[in-house]
Structure formats: C-alpha cells, structure tokens
Design a binder for these strands. Sequence first.
DNA 1: TATAAACAGGACTAATAAGGTCGTCATACT
DNA 2: AGTATGACGACCTTATTAGTCCTGTTTATA
Lengths: 141, 141
Amino acid sequence: MLLSQRADYAVRAMVYIAIQEKGKRVQIREAADKQEAPEPFLAKIVQALAVAGLVDTQRGAGGGIALARPAQDITLLQIVEAAEGPIALTRCTYEPGRCPRMERCAVHPVWERVQRVLETHLAAIRLSELAESQRKLTMAA
Amino acid sequence: MLLSQRADYAVRAMVYIAIQEKGKRVQIREAADKQEAPEPFLAKIVQALAVAGLVDTQRGAGGGIALARPAQDITLLQIVEAAEGPIALTRCTYEPGRCPRMERCAVHPVWERVQRVLETHLAAIRLSELAESQRKLTMAA
DNA sequence: TATAAACAGGACTAATAAGGTCGTCATACT
DNA sequence: AGTATGACGACCTTATTAGTCCTGTTTATA
C-alpha cells in the first residue's frame, strides 16, 4: 500500500468531525467507534492532526475535537501529510538534493514529476467536498 | 516513501538494459555496479521482471539480461508493478470489493480516483523515452 | 472542591515488510 | 570437462507499521 492506515483513519476521522453540527465537539471514542478504528491508535493520529493545526482539541468533560478552521480550507494533502509526514515517491525525491545521481539519472525528473502530479491532485480535494458527499450518502441510507 | 527501493532499482536497471546496443546482454553484476545497487538484491528484482515478461534472461557463459520486447512497448507502470506487486493507494482500494465501507464512505471513491490518476501517469511513460533521455545525459557528461 | 470526563504523552509490543545475504543448482558457451 | 552465468530458495536483519497500555493533566460541573 502506498498510503498507510494512519492516513486512511485520519481522513475518515476528519470527515466525521466535519459533518457535525457547528460547534459540536466529537470525542475520540465516538469517532473511533463510527469509523471502525482502534481508539488508542486514533487518539495518536488525532494528536498529529492537532500538532499540524488541523484540529483543535479540548480536554475535560464536554471536551473533544473540532476543526481548527473551516472545512473548505483543509485539503486532503494536508491531512495525509499530517498523518504520515511529508510524502515522497522514492528515496530520490525524499529531500531535494539528497539523491547523488540527480544530475546523471534520467529517472529522477520523472519521479519528481509524478510526485508533483500526486500532490496536486490531493491538494485539489477539500474536506468540505468530502463532508458534503458524506452527508448525502448518510441521508440516502 | 510511497514506492520501495525495489521499484527504483528496477526502473534504473531497465533503463540501463535499454540503452545497450541491440543484441548485447547485460550481466547482473555489471548493472548492479553501474546503478549502485546491491548485486544479490538486484538479482532478485530481475527475477521478478523476468516473471512479468519484461526481460529475457539467459544463463551460462555469455548470458545475461535483455529486454523481452521493444522499449516503447514497456511502461513505467509495468516495471513498477512487476517489482512491487499491484499498486494500491490504501487498504480500501487493495482489491475491488474488499472494503466493507465502500457503499457508505465518501472517501473511498476519492482514493480510487487518485489511484487511477497515478496509474495513468505511470502508464504514459515509456521505457524508450527514459532510455532516450538517459542517452543524452550520458553523452553530455 | 471533589469527581468524572476527556485528551497528552511516553514506553512498550507484535506483526509485517523491506532490504539484503548465501549456498546450491541448472544451463550454456568454449 | 570446465567455467561463467543466472535461477531459485532459505535465511537473516532491521525498519516501519500498527497497535496497546499506563500515567499523567486539564476542564466542566455537581
């Protein structure tokens, strides 16, 4: 698999948070149940999302998780990178300038191009769109 | 990293084989030296390429590896899949119908779409193009 | 102010995959 | 026959992934 479970859980959890009524906080337990994710594992992922500034967490009774900004300002790429760390197609493209063959290898620029395509596509998808189609799906059922 | 070292070694080795004069076979040892890949590891990868029908191997003195068909009939996607197995973005898209949430999850179709984009881009790149630009690079140096 | 509800954070573990090695056998040219 | 070469399979080591668990700390509210 190209993306890990972390990324998948993270995205689904974000969608779940996004479809709540405004102002309502979600508990990790609840999100884990609904998304069929192991609770302690999801808790860790949520921490990473919080560090990345995508969600705002609040402790204590009545606490929970909420989006840190409007859903249309959050992209799929941001969620994936928050959960997984920066994405790199191969070791060559992990850090710019890290690959010793860069100057003499015809494959290098191709990996870079493909990676850019992937990032662009992920960045074009907004959490608000995902939330919208999730709402429709849920209503239909 | 989204793709493993196997894929990277495989692609570079294929380019190296493709830039040889017609009819000349490459020894694994030689390819490993040139591509800075561990020889026994590359040998395994070459086996996978042979099973996938991308290269033709010949044992014995004067043996070695050659392309099994013209370089313009081999795509980057074929090489990557031969080296890594079928690519799947997430566990959801690993096998069609394998994901239990498919019907009620708004994220699922997005993963499928992104995966298709990736596959399409990889399939659009031909080994012959890579070989051509590698030849130019080598001549320039 | 006690208490229960919630996340924070670190240490730990199990399973899997990646990356790599080695030895032996089969094959083909000379 | 001898030697060069890949095929094949067993094995090993390390890193990553996917989790678990325990002990906090914060916060609302009864």
